[in-house]
C-alpha cells in the first residue's frame, strides 16, 4: 500500500523508515555512486530530510519498504534550487509546484512499485491543486518513467554513466493516468482510500491491509 508520511511521523513506522534510508544508501551510494552521505546506521540522509519533507512509501505485503520518494514545497528550501538550479534553467518557486527527490526502489522491488509511486505523485497533484512536480533523479529512470506513462520533461542532465543526474518536470495533465494505474495494478478507488488514510486522522500502526 501507499503511505503518505511526514518526517515527523516516521517514528510511527520504524521498520519502514529504517529500510527506506538503508535502501536509499544501497541505491544512491552503493549502486549509483552519487556523492551522498551514509551515517553509522547505514542510512542515507541529507539536509532535506531535516526539513520535515513528506515521504511517499510503498509498503509491501509483508510490511517492508518497497520504494519511496520525498517531497518538499518549492516555496521553501529545495534541493533543485540550492544545488541544481543550473540544470533546471531557473530557480523554480511556486506554491503550485512541489519538488520530488530520492525516488528509490527497494532491491528486488516488484515492477509495479515505480508505477505505484507515480500514482501517488499524481494523487498529490490532484489532491492539492499542484500544477507540476520538479524532480531530481537518476537519468536512466527517464525511460522507465516513460514506459509507466509518466514521462517527465528533462530540463537538464549532469554527470555521466550510472552517476548521471537529471532534473525534470512532471505535469499532471501530461501523464497518462490510466496507464500509470494499470502499470501499478491499482484501482483508483483503493488509491483514494490510501490518500484519505494518509491525510486524514493520525495513521495507526501498520494496518492489515497491505499492497
Amino acid at each position: 500500500m501507499l503511505r503518505y508520511v511526514y518526517a515527523d511521523d516516521l517514528h510511527r513506522f520504524p521498520r519502514l523508515a529504517d529500510q527506506m534510508f538503508r535502501h536509499r544508501a544501497a541505491q544512491f551510494h552503493d549502486r549509483l555512486g552519487w556523492e551522498v552521505s551514509v551515517d553509522g546506521a547505514g542510512h542515507e540522509r541529507d539536509e532535506y530530510d531535516d526539513k520535515n519533507p513528506l515521504y511517499v512509501i510503498w509498503q509491501t505485503a509483508d510490511g517492508g519498504h518497497g520504494g519511496s520518494m520525498r517531497f518538499l514545497p518549492t516555496t521553501g528550501d529545495t534541493m533543485v534550487n540550492d544545488h541544481f538550479r543550473h540544470l533546471a534553467g531557473a530557480e523554480i518557486r511556486s506554491p503550485l509546484i512541489w519538488e520530488c527527490t530520492r525516488f528509490c526502489l527497494a532491491p528486488g522491488a516488484e515492477g509495479r512499485v515505480a508505477a505505484a509511486l507515480m500514482v501517488a505523485c499524481g494523487e498529490l497533484m490532484r489532491g492539492f491543486s499542484l500544477e507540476h512536480m520538479i524532480g531530481v533523479f537518476d537519468a536512466r529512470m527517464v525511460r522507465i518513467y516513460g514506459r509507466i506513462g509518466a514521462a517527465p520533461e528533462v530540463l537538464g542532465r549532469q554527470g555521466c554513466g550510472r552517476g548521471m543526474i537529471a532534473v525534470g518536470l512532471w505535469s499532471y495533465a501530461a501523464a497518462d493516468r490510466g496507464r500509470v494505474f494499470a502499470r501499478a495494478e491499482l484501482d483508483p478507488i483503493v488509491s483514494e482510500a490510501w490518500f484519505r488514510q494518509g491525510f486524514g486522522r493520525p495513521i495507526e500502526a501498520p494496518a492489515a491491509m497491505a499492497g
Binding site: A90, S94, P95, E131, H132, I134, E153, L155, A174
Partner: peptide, 17 residues
Amino acid sequence: RISEHTLRAYIESARFK
C-alpha cells in the same frame, strides 16, 4: 525547445516571483 508544460512551469515560477 521546451514543451508547453515546461513553459508553464517557468511562467508559473516567474509569476510567483
